[in-house]
Design a protein around this nucleic acid. Sequence first.
DNA 1: GATGCTTGGATAGTGACACTTCCCAAGGAG
DNA 2: CTCCTTGGGAAGTGTCACTATCCAAGCATC
Lengths: 214, 214
Amino acid sequence: MRLGELSERSGVSTATIKYYLREGLLAPGRQINATTAEYGEEHLRRLRLVRALIQVGRVPVANAKQALKHVDDDSLGLTMRLGAALWELPQGPEPDEADPATAGARAQVDRLLAELGWESAREIGALSPVHRSLVALVALLIRLGYPCDAELMAPYAQLMHAAARLDLDRMETYESDAEKVELAVSSAVLFEPVLRALHRMAQEEESARRYGIV
Amino acid sequence: MRLGELSERSGVSTATIKYYLREGLLAPGRQINATTAEYGEEHLRRLRLVRALIQVGRVPVANAKQALKHVDDDSLGLTMRLGAALWELPQGPEPDEADPATAGARAQVDRLLAELGWESAREIGALSPVHRSLVALVALLIRLGYPCDAELMAPYAQLMHAAARLDLDRMETYESDAEKVELAVSSAVLFEPVLRALHRMAQEEESARRYGIV
DNA sequence: GATGCTTGGATAGTGACACTTCCCAAGGAG
DNA sequence: CTCCTTGGGAAGTGTCACTATCCAAGCATC
């Protein structure tokens, strides 16, 4: 497959593919001669993943590059490889330590983790971008005047834990670690929006049931 | 409160506040004389919501303006007002009808709604941006080679339905419709990221439990 | 063997968008 | 009187994902 065909089958313009090659998001094809390179199915697949990351996930090009590097890096163990790839994806806001609400928010998050018995999450703590971003979000909600404490979050956290168990069960059906990491990345980027859509649809459904469609 | 104080208490520069005033995201203050206007607590609160929409929710300024207009519009019933405001928020991708995977994806979504008995969601159908975006996302996952059918989504949808019930219970604790709509908007923008953070944290926790932290 | 296509490669430009800077004239404070 | 702040508008900035253009080298067709 040459550049033109890769472009046609992926629906991505040749100019954009050349841009991705330049930025290192896509491995170069097998060079046949000075003016021709050959691409395979794996290039097509990776190209589609790149598009998903950038267009749907709004992942900045630089982060997408890093995340994909971790997907391909087989020198690490599965957990680290997963973490490294997922931590490259855009997180929420960073906490503003100058804001007094941040300290309160951190306390609520700590209480939540203690109540749930999420020991590993407590150990990793502020090292994890996810943890920091949760603190920042809770602080923001509090500043806006919406209550957001451990009691309120706990039932949601239980639901999300159930979802996470489903996620990992699904991941275990894949053979190679590379496939698992790729599933995790595309899940974070594509399956999270699916979850969000299901959530909003469920809200519409429940709202219609309670208050009617009027 | 004058412009300078509003800026100081919100942490938003005066230039940016003036920009929001110009774009109609923020109601003008009460004009005292040619060079002075007076702002109240409600301006501060609205300003923080605007920041949350734009910075955390990445809502484009034009959509934020529309959504806020619906929050303030008391000529509609609650359900329509909710829908109108939420549908202004950024959704996922739109379905690509030229793609053969789209038809299959639509069939899976229809089956899912039928299995769950979400009758209102089926009635609203493709009118809802959420429905369309779910179809587009499922099609994308299928095109990438990840299975995504009604069986796979159903347990997730049940979890999201449970979350939606919690959401609406929470909403009912508010008195006025305007507050309810504002809660729904800020929930969509700020609480969805909280859910996502809880989800990712649960994944990390579950992954550490299954495979260790190594 | 001339012509017209595509290819890889590089450089510069585009468009969207959220600000941000700069300037102005008119109060108000010291 | 002088300095600062205010509201208001026009123009500029920075970022970022592309995109247009150009170039020389091959391959295909006439």
